[in-house]
Amino acid sequence: MKACLLAFGFLLCHLLASAQPAIPYGHNPAAGHYQLVRGVKLYYETYGQGLPLLLIHGNGDNISAFAKNIPYLAQRYRVIAVDSRAHGKSVDAGDSLSFEMMADDFAGLLTSLRLDSAYVVGWSDGGINALVLAMRHPKKVKRLVATGANLWPDSTALMPSLWRQQQRGYQENKNVKFTDPKRKNDWKVFCLDVFQPNIPLAALKGVRVPALIVAGDRDVIVPEHTVAIYRHLPRAWLWIIPNSGHATLQEHADDFNRKVDEFFRAKTVLPPAR
């Protein structure tokens, strides 16, 4: 009888836990805020307590991209997940968009939150933003993790199939006059990756903070390009994740979360600047 009661109790606890509604990351009023930064109302959500950790998503995405990462990271950090300008709830009516603009936004957001600096994790375009933020606002970044980032938009950086797809999409739509605000914004976001970034490898020498450069072994970023980014950063580590595509932080969330946390908390002496 006692064994049956214990088994029932475990089953009941499991059912109650599974009945709890999932947190709607990216659409969570309990954690969501707006901050006017450089003419754009940036939407962000905060979770947990501790040292600040800024999460930056990829092209066409939003905060929900980090749904598998925030619960773990919020146990140790004050997670600040933000919708980049022209993405998610961060509406941007302007015609232009660049990684430099977005990096300045993130620096401005940290300043508005009275934060001198933060750890930074960026995925895809967010990885590019993490690097650009460290280049343009070095004092704002404690350490950074960039997964699936590229420095320029051609077939030497992107897998040829992706590059051809982007070029075809641009050629087919470049003369379309978009009148619907959403489609116009989507086109602006799409063109961001067609023409940008344009960062010379030599510019990475200016990133003095420790950086963990990540990619999947089946990423859409050419492996040699990821290795080149790592080699040109003065204080960097490289992690190529086996059996992974571009979505490293989703496909291998448990390993990714632990590795990121270990990297940020490491007390070991950093290698000398190269």
Results as ranks from 00 to 15, higher is better:
residue 248 T to A: 15
residue 174 K to V: 07
residue 270 L to W: 15
residue 233 L to N: 03
residue 101 M to E: 11
residue 36 L to K: 14
residue 65 A to S: 15
residue 98 S to P: 00
residue 54 L to F: 05
residue 173 N to S: 09
residue 184 K to N: 13
residue 230 Y to P: 12
residue 195 F to E: 01
residue 186 D to I: 07
residue 181 P to Y: 05
residue 39 G to L: 09
residue 190 F to S: 10
residue 90 S to N: 04
residue 53 L to C: 04
residue 63 I to A: 01
residue 160 P to E: 05
residue 71 P to Q: 10
residue 152 W to M: 13
residue 186 D to H: 12
residue 112 S to Q: 15
residue 99 F to W: 11
residue 204 L to C: 09
residue 177 K to W: 03
residue 207 V to T: 08
residue 248 T to I: 10
residue 70 I to L: 06
residue 266 A to I: 05
residue 249 L to M: 15
residue 184 K to Q: 15
residue 101 M to K: 10
residue 94 G to F: 03
residue 187 W to C: 02
residue 139 K to S: 14
residue 209 V to K: 13
residue 262 E to R: 14
residue 19 A to E: 04
residue 137 H to F: 08
residue 235 R to D: 02
residue 100 E to A: 10
residue 261 D to Y: 05
residue 112 S to P: 08
residue 210 P to G: 04
residue 17 A to E: 13
residue 19 A to W: 11
residue 172 E to I: 02
residue 243 N to A: 13
residue 203 A to V: 11
residue 237 W to N: 12
residue 238 L to P: 05
residue 107 A to Q: 10
residue 71 P to S: 10
residue 82 V to M: 06
residue 268 T to N: 13
residue 245 G to F: 03
residue 46 T to Q: 14
residue 11 L to C: 12
residue 80 I to V: 07
residue 63 I to T: 00
residue 235 R to H: 11
residue 25 Y to D: 00
residue 56 I to K: 05
residue 177 K to C: 04
residue 92 D to L: 01
residue 57 H to T: 00
residue 181 P to L: 07
residue 94 G to R: 15
residue 214 V to W: 01
residue 135 M to E: 13
residue 195 F to P: 03
residue 90 S to P: 07
residue 83 D to G: 02
residue 268 T to K: 15
residue 165 Q to K: 14
residue 174 K to L: 04
residue 146 A to V: 13
residue 71 P to A: 09
residue 9 G to Q: 10
residue 72 Y to K: 11
residue 142 K to I: 13
residue 55 L to C: 00
residue 136 R to V: 06
residue 196 Q to V: 01
residue 108 G to R: 08
residue 20 Q to V: 12
residue 165 Q to E: 14
residue 208 R to G: 13
residue 66 F to D: 00
residue 232 H to E: 11
residue 69 N to W: 01
residue 145 V to C: 06
residue 28 N to E: 04
residue 116 D to E: 15
residue 35 Q to Y: 07
residue 244 S to G: 10
residue 118 A to W: 03
residue 60 G to D: 05
residue 253 A to H: 10
residue 31 A to G: 01
residue 98 S to N: 00
residue 153 P to F: 07
residue 227 V to L: 13
residue 210 P to M: 05
residue 239 W to A: 02
residue 108 G to C: 09
residue 76 R to W: 11
residue 123 W to A: 14
residue 109 L to C: 04
residue 106 F to H: 15
residue 117 S to Y: 03
residue 228 A to T: 04
residue 6 L to P: 05
residue 177 K to F: 05
residue 16 L to D: 04
residue 28 N to M: 01
residue 21 P to Y: 06
residue 147 T to G: 12
residue 127 G to F: 01
residue 66 F to H: 02
residue 238 L to S: 07
residue 134 A to W: 07
residue 30 A to K: 14
residue 72 Y to A: 15
residue 50 G to A: 00
residue 96 S to Y: 11
residue 270 L to F: 11
residue 88 G to T: 02
residue 212 L to G: 06
residue 23 I to S: 06
residue 168 R to C: 08
residue 150 N to M: 00
residue 96 S to M: 11
residue 194 V to N: 07
residue 268 T to C: 08
residue 251 E to N: 03
residue 88 G to C: 03
